[in-house]
Design a protein around this nucleic acid. Structure first.
Lengths: 186, 186
DNA sequence: ATTCCTATAGACTGATTAGTCAATTTAATA
DNA sequence: TATTAAATTGACTAATCAGTCTATAGGAAT
């Protein structure tokens, strides 16, 4: 990826997250990225293409962070905790990307094509869960409900420690995971 | 409240939720409400005042819906379930208001004054929780974490049934509550 | 050296925006 | 009925916006 293209993505991520899509002008993005508006439209044919590429880029970052969490030697709870912790840590350390994802995941500017492309990449992650289900360690709630419960727990945990940074430590992180785990386990 | 003022609030709620704050023009709001732009600015001195009054109004609606859930004769779990169900049902039945609240609760357009005013009204709701804590029915997680866990569970449940409306029935609602309850209870 | 393509710049444009203002209608009161 | 204040209108304006266009600069290939 070209250097200026990356600068434009970084600037957009920051500004879209802070002020929203319509609240951010392409002129501001160009200025923050240190390029001319013409350069922005050279790499991205419209503001909408820019936000779609940005959505794809942030979701890819998230997926990279959470790959490979199914070590058959470890107990299921441990595998699941690693996944949960990776998601929460991504939310806290890469908070701009995480906030962008949750703000724009149901935005009308993101085309369904963009969403499909990235959702397809998510399949692997689900393996952990399927294993736990097979081993009957977790409740027999249907798959979609369990997944939304997992994601909801991650989002509310990240939001919580964003609101109370002084509470962020290993002990409270364990507490938050146990809330999630005791809900989902048998 | 004057009739046209209410029409303007209703139109704003719909349009802000669908297209965002910056994505909605005052001209569109006025047209949807069936008034002239001059009338809009007669009742609301700016677009920002409009969204702040709307935030206050939607949060008041939410609070009205969830009042008085501490019947000492009933077991704690039942009281808490009523509160949880009222929140979830509000999210599903008044989905515009609910979506507006979660979309704009950390928006820069809502002043901290507006937020304070409404948060103060929330105190009463917490009584249920305090009772359960005293009776040692729930885990000794600190107060703020438990509250954020409760709200997170409500949001993810509402989102879930919004995504899969065909799954919305009493049985699955109970399932979703049990996920929450088994997390928080001892 | 010449050709040709990509990268970069920033002035410019037509469209849209939040908010104003002077004129008019409505409603209430004296 | 006459008077006055509040409600309502929509044309108007100055500012801002997304995207275009023309002009250069650089570098690779011939």
């Amino acid at each position: 990826m070209k250097e200026k293209e990356q600068k434009i993505l970084d600037a957009s991520l920051k500004l879209f997250t802070e002020r929203g899509f319509q609240g951010t002008s392409t002129a501001e993005i160009a200025k923050t990225a240190g390029v001319a508006t013409g350069t922005l439209f050279h790499y991205f044919k419209s503001k909408e293409e820019l936000i779609n590429r940005l959505y794809f880029y942030t979701k890819e970052s998230l997926l990279t962070e959470i790959s490979a969490h199914c070590d058959d030697k470890k107990p299921f709870k441990e595998n699941l905790k690693e996944l949960w912790l990776d998601l929460v840590n991504f939310g806290i350390n890469d908070s701009n990307k995480f906030q962008f994802i949750i703000t724009f995941h149901c935005s009308p500017y993101i085309t369904s094509l963009t969403k499909e492309e990235i959702e397809n990449k998510l399949e692997g992650t689900l393996e952990v869960y399927k294993k736990g289900l097979k081993e009957q360690e977790i409740k027999e709630v249907y798959f979609e409900l369990a997944m939304d419960y997992l994601w909801g727990s991650v989002v509310s945990t990240v939001d919580h420690f964003g609101k109370y940074p002084e509470k962020f430590n290993a002990h409270n992180l364990d507490l938050a995971f146990e809330l999630f785990w005791d809900g989902i386990s048998k």
